[in-house]
């Protein structure tokens, strides 16, 4: 058998989901060490990383001991409990300005889903009857402004924009003036995607942040880091560096409508202390949900 056939054969098993696989383990076995090993591997396969997977298994083990659980079938419940406990260590509510417009800055690496999430968030708040304004502060990527304009059209919302190549901080400046003049409740600011190891681009983001804070005291009220749900261990690095530079206040996990589990948010919440606030479940304007720790944990653990 060739090299690749070997691998392929080994991988065939992974077609069955984490839970289906664990389900068999849970049904057929007493609570022994091998059950916990399988659980750890399932957690790793959900992108939680080795350390968090290990920590979670220890939490489940402690819960099993406390509840005198002897049967593996009772484990899924405990897994959900342990995971949702870890995920609700932080407060997932959005923060709003007490007075005047609330400014939300959307940040993240390239292609994570920032612009799309802005469109969805605009729709969410417009439906609640809020006055929403969009700021096209990604002046770098080809047709990023047109993309946000298309979203503005779709959800019926104004977009403050300059032209490609303009200073993004100047767009934010204008958006704040416009937001005040028009009595906007919420200003949603798009920014260009940037990889966290690009220091000059991170410095540009810090400048955008500074201009917002200066022109609208107390803002940005939210800095949302958008993380692609298919992201692996690099996501933790993203959270760490973006937090250092612009004091991230919440996470949006996107693309959870696929088969990725988005487990990287567990170490982000746990180690970086940043709460998840929203999850993205598709490309349509309704495909955004406020984060619910228990629902998320159940989605990861159960079929």
């Amino acid at each position: 058998m060739g090299l690749f056939d070997r691998f392929k054969k080994g991988l065939q098993k992974s077609r069955t989901s984490l839970v289906e696989r664990l389900g068999n383990v849970f049904r057929s076995r007493k609570l022994d060490e091998s059950v916990y090993e399988e659980m750890e591997e399932a957690f790793i396969a959900a992108d939680m990383g080795v350390e968090t997977a290990f920590a979670l298994v220890e939490d489940v083990r402690a819960l099993a001991r406390k509840n005198k659980v002897e049967n593996a079938e009772q484990l899924p419940e405990l897994m959900v409990e342990a995971m949702s406990k870890m995920l609700s260590e932080q407060d997932s509510e959005m923060r709003f300005a007490t007075d005047g417009p609330t400014l939300v800055l959307m940040v993240g690496v390239n292609g994570a889903g920032k612009t799309t999430t802005i469109g969805k968030l605009a729709h969410y708040y417009l439906t609640e009857g809020k006055r929403v304004l969009l700021a096209a502060a990604d002046t770098f990527r080809a047709a990023a402004i047109e993309q946000l304009l298309a979203w503005g059209d779709r959800v019926d919302c104004d977009v403050i924009r300059h032209t490609q190549g303009a200073d993004p901080a100047a767009v934010i400046f204008d958006a704040i003036q416009a937001g005040r003049a028009r009595n906007a409740d919420i200003i949603l600011c798009d920014t260009a995607g940037r990889l966290q190891n690009k220091t000059h681009l991170m410095a540009e983001l810090a400048k955008i942040h500074k201009v917002a804070a200066r022109e609208l005291p107390g803002s940005p009220h939210e800095v949302l880091l958008v993380i692609d749900g298919t992201t692996g261990q690099n996501g933790l690095n993203q959270a760490k560096v973006f937090k250092e530079v612009v004091d991230v206040s919440g996470i949006v996990v996107t693309k959870l409508d696929g088969t990725a589990k988005g487990g990287i948010v567990l170490p982000i919440v746990h180690e970086q202390g940043i709460p998840v606030k929203w999850i993205g479940l598709g490309e349509g304007m309704d495909d955004l949900q406020p984060f619910d720790a228990t629902a998320f944990a159940e989605a990861v653990c159960k079929p």
Partner: peptide, 30 residues
């Protein structure tokens, strides 16, 4: 930056389309 799910993605795209090669993007990151 893709994590564990790459296995499902690659498997399905390959099965349905007979992929002939891969382009790995954003390798300028860390």
């Amino acid at each position: 930056m893709t994590g564990q799910d790459a296995v499902h993605v690659a498997e399905t795209f390959h099965e349905r389309l007979g992929v002939t090669g891969v382009i790995l993007t954003k390798l300028d990151g860390d």
